[in-house]
Design a binder for these strands. Structure first.
Ligand SMILES: [Zn+2]
Length: 396
DNA sequence: CGGATTTGACCCGCGC
DNA sequence: GCGCGGGTCAAATCCG
């Protein structure tokens, strides 16, 4: 356990995520991937039940792919794999919807990735899987050219620090430089437990800083939080923005909605991402109190680069507030899903340091399918998304 | 006219 | 206890 704790504490781990499929055929199935593990690690992996092994293999494969890939765009694998094919299902209306489909092992699309990620997150062996991945990464660091990994790690740290100090935005040029992992690659950051905190930093590098802490705070028990992010390029460079869309994919949609978090404020107040407070009236007076029943809320955030703040993610949202945020020149907007009975919320805020970056945080799970046809959503997001980050899932 | 947005007031947790 | 900051409410307003 100590081990674990340490690891988790280490701040979020960054698993690179790339889109393109590995050229190597070695990532086609779980076994092939697992064979790449050193014996000691493999032993650990083999102690996992098959389904978890598959998840582990998937995450590792994605990680490997991403570190090797060099494509410019591929964050989530775009279409090649599945996006419009197998992995996506169609619903009655003919729209793509979030149906839970079976994620393909070889596919690195957002949906599949998220599905696996979710499986990992909800697995009782979550930590073990996480450890195996870390051990493997360390192994790679030692044996292979550390460059990328090292960089990555470094970046992460930095980012985190930075985030703590300042805000989210892009702060450090140097980081950027380093980060440049490519301009094209994407990285996924998963934060193990946390919840709260992640901050999204520029290149997506950041993630959560205080996860460990957060976790502790959560009283609930299951907190799961993680973050996933992908970045494409150096956003740092400035560029463009993404839009905040929400969910494109299935799982993710189901998982939640994000709210945004981004500044320190969020970080500081883990408890809530978006909470319910409210004014007055009655409402819930205290939501917080009932702990037990908390609703588990899944929360995650990602950055996109876009000139538009609002992206059509297939759901209908009603804006219910806007606030200025401390240290940010842009206001934060609050939205609620308009579907009856659905309480998903999202926050959208533009990064003050890099105006092209929009951070969207979703919180909650939709209880319904998307309401509008967003056929092009995926394309839009894939094109625009520079960074994607899953901040966390939280129970509130 | 109904639904969405705007926007100031209110609530609430937190740090001092 | 007070002030701050963030999140939410809800009346007023906007818009198709
Ligand atoms: Zn909804």
């Amino acid at each position: 356990m100590n081990h674990k704790e340490m690891k988790f504490k280490r701040k979020g781990n960054v698993y690179p995520f790339l889109s393109s499929p590995p050229s190597s055929s070695s990532y086609k199935d779980p076994d092939s991937v697992l064979k790449l593990l050193p014996v000691a690690i493999l032993a650990l992996a083999l102690s996992l039940p098959n389904h978890d092994r598959e998840v582990l293999a998937y995450l590792i494969a994605r990680s490997l792919i991403s570190t090797t890939a060099t494509h410019p765009y591929s964050c989530f694998n775009t279409n090649q794999h599945h996006s419009k094919n197998n992995c996506k299902t169609t619903n009655a209306n003919g729209k793509k919807k979030c149906v839970q489909k079976v994620p393909l092992f070889e596919c690195g699309c957002f949906d599949c990735y998220t599905s696996f990620w979710y499986r990992w997150d909800s697995s009782p062996n979550r930590e073990l899987i996480h450890q195996v991945i870390e051990a493997f990464e360390d192994h790679l660091l030692q044996n292979e050219s550390p460059s990328k990994h090292a960089r990555r790690r470094k970046r992460g740290n930095k980012a985190i620090e930075a985030s703590v100090e300042s805000d989210i935005s892009v702060n450090k040029p140097e980081a950027e430089a380093e980060t440049s992992v490519g301009e094209d690659e994407c990285e996924v950051v998963m934060m193990p437990e946390n919840t709260e905190g992640g901050v999204v930093k520029e290149n997506g590098v950041v993630c959560g800083e205080k996860m460990g802490k957060m976790t502790r705070n959560l009283k609930m028990g299951m907190v799961t939080g993680q973050a996933l992010g992908a970045n494409h390029k150096g956003l740092a460079r400035k560029g463009r923005h993404l839009e905040p869309s929400t969910c494109s994919s299935s799982l993710q949609m189901q998982m939640a909605n994000p709210g945004i978090q981004f500044d320190e404020s969020w970080i500081n107040s883990p408890k809530t991402g978006i909470h319910q407070g409210g004014s007055s009236s009655s409402k819930s007076g205290k939501v917080g109190d009932n702990e037990n029943k908390e609703i588990t809320r899944h929360r995650y955030a990602f950055q996109t680069r876009s000139q538009i703040d609002i992206l059509d993610d297939g759901y209908r949202w009603r804006k219910y507030g806007q606030k200025t945020v401390k240290n940010s020149k842009f206001p934060r907007s609050y939205y609620k899903c308009t579907h009856n009975g659905c309480s998903v919320k999202k926050q959208v805020q533009r990064n003050s340091k890099d105006e092209e970056i929009v951070v969207t945080t979703y919180e909650g799970m939709h209880t319904h399918p998307t309401e509008t046809c967003t056929d092009n959503f995926e394309e839009i997001i894939l094109r625009q998304m520079q960074t994607y980050r899953l901040l966390s899932n939280t129970h509130v």
